[in-house]
Design a protein around this nucleic acid. Sequence first.
DNA 1: CTAAAATCATGACAATTGTCATATTTGAAA
DNA 2: TTTCAAATATGACAATTGTCATGATTTTAG
Lengths: 237, 237
Amino acid sequence: MAKKEEIQHDCEHCKSRYKSIFCQIAPEELQIINENKWCQTLEKGQQLFAEGAYPHGLFCVNSGKIKIHQMGEEGREQIVRFAKEGDVVGYRAMLAGEKYSSSATALDHTSICFIPKNVIFALIEKDSSFSIQIIKLLSSNLKHAEESILHLAQKPVRERMAESLLFLKEMYGLESDGITLSVSLSREEIATLVGTATETTIRLLSEFKTKKLLSFDGRKIQIIDTPGLLKIANIHD
Amino acid sequence: MAKKEEIQHDCEHCKSRYKSIFCQIAPEELQIINENKWCQTLEKGQQLFAEGAYPHGLFCVNSGKIKIHQMGEEGREQIVRFAKEGDVVGYRAMLAGEKYSSSATALDHTSICFIPKNVIFALIEKDSSFSIQIIKLLSSNLKHAEESILHLAQKPVRERMAESLLFLKEMYGLESDGITLSVSLSREEIATLVGTATETTIRLLSEFKTKKLLSFDGRKIQIIDTPGLLKIANIHD
DNA sequence: CTAAAATCATGACAATTGTCATATTTGAAA
DNA sequence: TTTCAAATATGACAATTGTCATGATTTTAG
């Protein structure tokens, strides 16, 4: 991870802070973070950290999009989570005192801040409401992971594909036109999210296009018929 | 959940405490827990809590075996986690302030203690090392969940079946004969763990038996050839 | 702008896995 | 024990999904 000269943001005026686990901390604690953090930008495709490395702190996402992914057998990737502004990444391994079990890669031009391990642990020590924030974050991640387990085990690929597209809409939202997914993933990446082969992904997306549920503009995907996708995804409420 | 008259254990002398998230707490805190907890036993098949209900506290497993499972579409169950003595169940939803997203059912005669919500939150408030225990527990669960996601998405059923059997051996150990799995699950339950159809489970177990990897004694499964199962599971290190 | 590489697309086919039907066995209760 | 329901087992078949091959298109680098 090359440390380049980067603009050092100010935590106090950080707009993503209010959406984050740092939303409730005291000004003096924030000051400590501000003095110890450093900021960095990542280009699309750059890796933030890699599976197997040791964490020295955690990363706050200022802006941009990040995928958290794991390597399976025969080098096939699996996306297990996403992050956007206000999210924190690389914290699970750090908190558990383990090596990273996943890698993190930018999906876009992304701005992040790094906060050292000792600062985080000192904060947990001092501020129980911060601990609760972390606990809630982990709980939320665990809930989503267990939901993924359920769906991977029981739903057919077509349903998962529709669900994943709707998930991406929820997660990263739409562009100003109101229909185009903000996040741009390759067919292969979508395959590693849904848990299927790239060819199957291509075929299903074409099918959805034919059925007027989607349309494409280059790599960008437009969501034309959300209710239709909900129906295919077998989501009722 | 019927409150029957149950033997009230003493937390101070609880043998499963040292394996649990309560291993480090101060004697006076332990006393508070002891005064507020209540104990209960569950027979095989009894439910501890159900998906959709509101949690009022968490459950410590004293002895026995518990499965954590979710209901999918068309009423198919999916096992997402197991618990044994020293483990804590029902805490994720409680900590997040949500309804249970899974149910918990005893797989054996099981003894548990209930600790009310407010006692746990007071402990988090007071004792940062307890918070860290909870954080580590959630981190560990999340890591395993993400590993399951990877395997469900990428490994074929046969590999997952072998892996699940080895997992059950790790999780609940063997009987005194050194080969019989301590936990006894129906074929259907194994299917909901592996994420496949019951028939496929039956066929694969028969295949493993034919290949002298397993043998059966009624519902009990004996692990005959662990290296062989590791090979099928595609686990190398 | 052009060449090379990566990505996307499509067809043909095979392997895996699920579903349905139907025994057979086991275990629990009368 | 006897009986009945549940669990296990097995076969036949179909549907889903993955793999391999190949070509078209897009993107990227020089």
